[in-house]
Design a protein around this nucleic acid. Structure first.
Length: 572
DNA sequence: GCCGTTTTCGGCCCGACTGTTTTCAGTCG
């Protein structure tokens, strides 16, 4: 049984326990365990075999025995029992915004409503107001929540929300009195998807900021507005929350609203241990004296910690690392010296080799590997041996034209065919500076087969880099069902690099896989996969994903010079 | 359900907003 399956069962159990009115902390224990397991990065089954489950934070004797039962039998008696106690539809009600366990239980027990559909009918018929404490407004909120549930779009991609945030912040910075404006939440932590956008503004005069916020053209609907907090939805249904606070409290506020919630809970626990209470407003000692923090550094310092980079704040061990002075020195965008995947008009790119090289140079890079598709990926009109020879001549000409200020390396994005064979023979590959191989077809093959295909590419001595290993497209399709642990070990053994594809719809490897790769010593690269001159701008998202995976510059090959990189390739 | 250089039992983050009630519970992040 796989990690995500166990995590889903624990999450489901948490929901049911919640409806049943179980102790809040017991419910949270299930949720925490689910999150930890889902982001573990290595197979839970392996840890189970080693008999080491309780070494995982948040897994005690009880949950370990439940995991044991799941691993042995594929089933969990306690889960079956829980499911028999609460109708599935009642648990689904928890997904309605504004409906929590208490309300769902009352709909069920007091009104005998056990599906979302029946709840909607009852609300329309004005029956919910029969409940004590429910009025017409509550009823309306339930209906709106159900409407939202029906047309919810899910989480948006980081690369789509980023520009929305920049635009809104630019508008807010124009308001007189605004001294700081920044994104917070999962966008600042650079999660691959963002559920809603959190914006933070420091100003002593909140009213005009709120006024300006709700008048931004993209704002469709104001969901709630208070003195310090306003929530809106854009016309395409995306929620944006704005908080305005005093400049002197910027540090605690930015820290708090950046999250994650799990990270904050840990931090507040640390504060309590030291006789303080931490909120978004201040650190407060037991005698009620407030310590204001104008910067995040001051917040962490007051707790005896170095500043923890936002990308690490997921309660995945960063607090322990910080306490022991073992935070990684994370890679930064400026560390990248080259890019290791881009396309030209020779396959499915939109600009010439020269135009792409100049665009890469304009972004401060000193080299880039041209990786047009090989011909086997039919739709892209890729290169065969003859096409590669022609491109090699073009590369030489472009390099001469750029006069040493920039270097194009010769490469290919080599198709790993559905039968596992490679799209070009070894002697053709041997002439290239670097070979990038990837899967585009047969992604739905069963695990053993698709894993074997990629292993074959990894073990080919001419293949240097595996691009976007899983082939997932965020929000569109799952990646291949790879045995990632096997892939990572093979990459480490053969000194084959795995790519962090920086395109916002890929971010593949993801943060969890990156972290495991770093732990296993797998060489990494961060590539733009640019198909046009603006395509190089996405590198920041690739770097962010590397940072979320605890990667340092030393873990990423394209922080090295072109010569060092080629030396690495020859050593292989 | 987890966890322990203040505890093996008794804690487990903190505050805003809403709707409805008259001092607060529920939900959310």
């Amino acid at each position: 049984m796989e990690n995500h399956q166990v995590a889903e069962i624990f999450l489901s159990m948490a929901d049911i326990l919640d409806v049943l009115g179980a102790n809040y902390h017991r419910v949270m224990a299930y949720r925490r365990a689910a999150e930890t397991i889902a982001t573990l990065g290595r197979p839970l089954e392996e840890i189970w075999r080693e008999g080491d489950l309780t070494a995982i934070p948040g897994i005690g004797e009880t949950l370990a025995s439940k995991i044991d039962e799941l691993m042995r039998t594929g089933d969990l008696e306690a889960y079956r029992k829980l499911r028999s106690e609460v109708p599935e539809g009642v648990v689904t009600m928890l997904e309605i915004p504004g409906v929590g366990p208490k309300s769902a239980t009352r709909f069920w027990k007091e009104l005998d409503i056990s599906t979302v559909e029946a709840l909607e009918e009852a609300a329309l018929a004005g029956r919910l107001r029969e409940l004590h404490g429910f009025g017409a407004k509550s009823e309306q909120n339930v209906l709106e929540g159900i409407e939202f549930l029906k047309r919810r779009t899910g989480r948006a991609r980081l690369g789509d929300v980023w520009p929305l945030a920049q635009d809104m912040l630019a508008a807010l910075r124009e308001v007189p009195g605004v001294v700081q404006a920044a994104p917070a939440g999962s966008l600042r932590r650079m999660r691959e998807t963002v559920g809603d956008l959190d914006l933070l503004v420091a100003s002593s005069d909140p009213a005009p900021v709120m006024e300006r916020f709700v008048s931004i053209p993209r704002v469709g609907e104001v969901m709630l507005s208070g003195e310090t907090k306003t929530s809106v939805r854009t016309y395409d249904g995306f929620q944006v929350d704005l908080r305005v606070l005093e400049p002197a409290r910027w540090g605690t506020a930015l820290q708090y609203f950046t999250g994650s919630q799990a990270h904050n809970i840990r931090l507040r626990g640390l504060a309590l241990d030291q006789g303080m209470s931490l909120s978004e407003y201040a650190l407060t000692s037991e005698d009620g004296a407030e310590t204001l923090c104008a910067s995040e550094e001051q917040v962490y310092e007051a707790l005896g910690l170095p500043l923890i980079p936002p990308e690490l704040r997921e309660d995945r061990g960063e607090i322990e690392a910080a306490l022991h002075g073992q935070l990684p020195d994370l890679i930064e965008l400026e560390d990248l010296k080259g890019d290791l995947q881009f396309h030209t008009t020779a396959s499915d790119g939109h600009q010439s080799l020269l135009e792409m090289a100049e665009a890469a140079r304009a972004r401060g890079l000193t080299y880039a590997l041209v990786t047009d598709h090989s011909h086997g990926l039919g739709v892209t009109g890729g290169l065969d041996a003859e096409g590669l020879r022609e491109q090699a001549a073009e590369v030489a000409a472009v390099n001469a034209q750029l006069g040493g200020s920039f270097r194009v390396l010769t490469g290919i994005e080599l198709e790993v065919r559905a039968d596992g064979s490679l799209d070009l023979p070894d002697d053709v590959l041997a002439d290239l500076d670097l070979v990038v191989a990837s899967l585009h077809v047969g992604l739905r093959q069963e695990r053993e087969r698709v894993t074997a295909r990629l292993l074959g590419a990894i073990r080919n001595p001419h293949v240097n880099i595996i691009a976007h290993p899983t082939g997932r497209l965020i929000g569109q399709r799952e990646g291949a069902d790879l045995d990632m642990e096997m892939i990572l070990h093979a990459a480490a053994e053969t000194n084959t690099a795995l790519e962090i594809n920086a395109h916002p719809s890929r971010l593949d490897l993801n943060d969890v896989h990156v972290r495991r790769a770093v732990a296993l010593g797998v060489p990494l690269v961060i590539s733009s996969d640019a198909h046009d001159v603006d395509g190089f701008d996405v590198l920041r998202f690739g770097v962010a994903t590397a940072r979320r995976g605890w990667a340092t510059a030393a873990d990423v090959l394209n922080t090295r010079s072109a010569d060092e990189l080629l030396r690495w390739a020859r050593q292989r």
